[in-house]
Amino acid sequence: MIWQGHRLKRYARFVEVRTFPEALKAIMEQQGWTQVELARELGVSQAWVSEVSRGQKDTGMARAIGLLARVGWEVRISPKMEESVERREFLAAAASVVFVPSTRANPYQDADYVHTLAASLARNRYELGGIPLVSSALGHARRIEQVLHDTVRDKALQTAASQLADQVTLVLYDAGSLVQADRVGGLALELARRAGDHESQARAYDTLSRVSLDRGDHARGVTYAQRGLQMTDITNGQRASLSMRLGRSLAFIPGQETASRDILDHALNVGGLSPFGEAALVGDVAIGLGHLHAYGEAGTLLSEAAEAIGQWSPLFRAQYLGRQVQTAMRASDLSLAADRMHKLARALPFVTSGRVNKRVGEILKASQTNAAPEIRQAREHLRAMISPAPPPST
């Protein structure tokens, strides 16, 4: 597990720590703070800092992430082993902490630093889910808004800030804060426009289409996807993803079912994607096919996606498992639905996601009147693994 620091006052170098107590000690050393001063910055008591620093008191992952964000640090989970691992092994894998310094007084004016923040936020979202990252993500959003008023007009900085705003949008989207996600997504698009960066604009349109679809504004989802596809010089991955967004949005518009199916098929055949991008695309296209009532095809693709994506993103795996449960139930394949409910239940403790929580709630509601013994047992397993913490309000 990586506890990653981002503010450096006294010297610029990499610092590796492996535990939360070591992270607190490193912060005090780097900032020249006493325990009292650190406690003030974190909003906790000096006694709490003392107990945690000595390893006498433990804290949960979500709280640790929130506290460290207040002093400019982020948590990044990174296994040392290269082969695919189950989530429990993934969390237990040896890891280290990387301190990323900036030579600027205001690191948010450093394009390389901002780009690193965006990459780190993406990794953490894939691994943990959006809810634990909301506090730090909103902090990033407030800081990068200042880039819009930057008189230097640094194109590289605007591009990096757009990428970070896009990742903040995805964190808020996954946490269920859709209104805030839409606002920050607009910021990402405006920064990309000012930079004149077509890839960043396409990325922002893709994300805004995703948010619009989740908000039920399907026509807006279509518009954003179409605008993204009009951009020139974008990657195959972006073109495939935007086509998928367009197809999924059209699936909800009466009379557009054939067009939706054709576009989703086209998205699958774009080619040239990374293994992660290919797995994510397959899963997302499958969701669109499910909306078109092609349950057999959707179920097959969702199974493929959930199996492939787990080595990169426990969050995506949980999402695809949830979708597979719903698809199997709609197809009246109770045996498959029960099997995937058990797998989803085992995945829940390792992600904290508003979207996953919503999906589980829908599954529990849809299955509550089903008398099949395998569904009842799977439902109880799923209910027992639900996180008590609700997603943030929208």
Rank of each mutant, 00 (worst) to 15 (best):
residue 390 P to K: 09
residue 389 A to C: 05
residue 83 E to K: 14
residue 172 L to F: 11
residue 190 E to V: 09
residue 167 Q to M: 13
residue 325 V to F: 08
residue 316 F to P: 01
residue 200 S to H: 00
residue 25 K to Y: 15
residue 382 L to A: 01
residue 186 G to Y: 03
residue 140 H to V: 10
residue 259 A to N: 06
residue 380 E to Y: 12
residue 328 A to T: 01
residue 386 I to T: 13
residue 280 A to F: 04
residue 183 R to Q: 06
residue 385 M to W: 02
residue 152 V to N: 09
residue 240 A to P: 01
residue 327 T to V: 15
residue 184 V to C: 04
residue 188 A to I: 08
residue 260 S to T: 11
residue 77 I to A: 10
residue 391 P to H: 08
residue 185 G to A: 06
residue 189 L to I: 03
residue 191 L to P: 00
residue 206 D to G: 06
residue 279 A to W: 00
residue 26 A to I: 12
residue 285 V to P: 04
residue 242 L to V: 05
residue 170 L to M: 10
residue 216 G to P: 06
residue 69 A to L: 12
residue 270 V to N: 02
residue 37 E to N: 00
residue 321 L to F: 03
residue 43 G to S: 11
residue 244 M to W: 03
residue 236 N to A: 05
residue 32 G to A: 02
residue 38 L to S: 10
residue 237 G to C: 01
residue 296 G to Y: 07
residue 361 G to T: 08
residue 176 G to R: 04
residue 176 G to H: 10
residue 183 R to L: 07
residue 310 G to Q: 05
residue 242 L to C: 07
residue 392 P to M: 12
residue 36 V to D: 15
residue 363 I to P: 02
residue 189 L to Q: 00
residue 392 P to V: 12
residue 169 T to V: 07
residue 85 V to F: 14
residue 176 G to C: 09
residue 137 A to T: 09
residue 358 K to E: 10
residue 111 A to I: 04
residue 84 S to I: 06
residue 163 Q to M: 11
residue 43 G to T: 14
residue 276 F to R: 05
residue 16 E to A: 13
residue 291 H to G: 11
residue 123 R to Y: 13
residue 388 P to N: 05
residue 322 G to P: 00
residue 88 R to D: 11
residue 10 R to L: 10
residue 62 A to C: 11
residue 162 S to Y: 11
residue 291 H to K: 12
residue 312 W to Q: 09
residue 32 G to S: 07
residue 355 R to F: 05
residue 264 L to Q: 01
residue 66 G to N: 04
residue 290 G to L: 02
residue 251 A to C: 01
residue 234 I to F: 00
residue 13 R to V: 15
residue 140 H to Y: 14
residue 206 D to Q: 07
residue 160 A to W: 08
residue 121 L to D: 05
residue 206 D to S: 08
residue 204 A to F: 01
residue 259 A to L: 03
residue 27 I to L: 15
residue 391 P to L: 05
residue 197 D to T: 01
residue 73 W to R: 06
residue 88 R to M: 11
residue 353 S to G: 03
residue 323 R to Y: 11
residue 167 Q to L: 13
residue 264 L to R: 02
residue 294 A to F: 00
residue 125 R to W: 14
residue 388 P to H: 10
residue 333 D to Y: 14
residue 368 Q to H: 12
residue 153 R to V: 12
residue 58 D to T: 14
residue 135 S to E: 13
residue 160 A to Y: 07
residue 394 T to G: 11
residue 214 D to P: 05
residue 61 M to A: 05
residue 37 E to D: 04
residue 65 I to T: 06
residue 229 L to S: 07
residue 355 R to D: 07
residue 118 A to Y: 07
residue 238 Q to E: 01
residue 386 I to R: 13
residue 6 H to S: 15
residue 72 G to N: 12
residue 148 L to G: 06
residue 232 T to Y: 12
residue 352 T to L: 13
residue 262 D to W: 09
residue 311 Q to P: 05
residue 330 R to T: 00
residue 356 V to K: 04
residue 379 R to T: 06
residue 357 N to M: 14
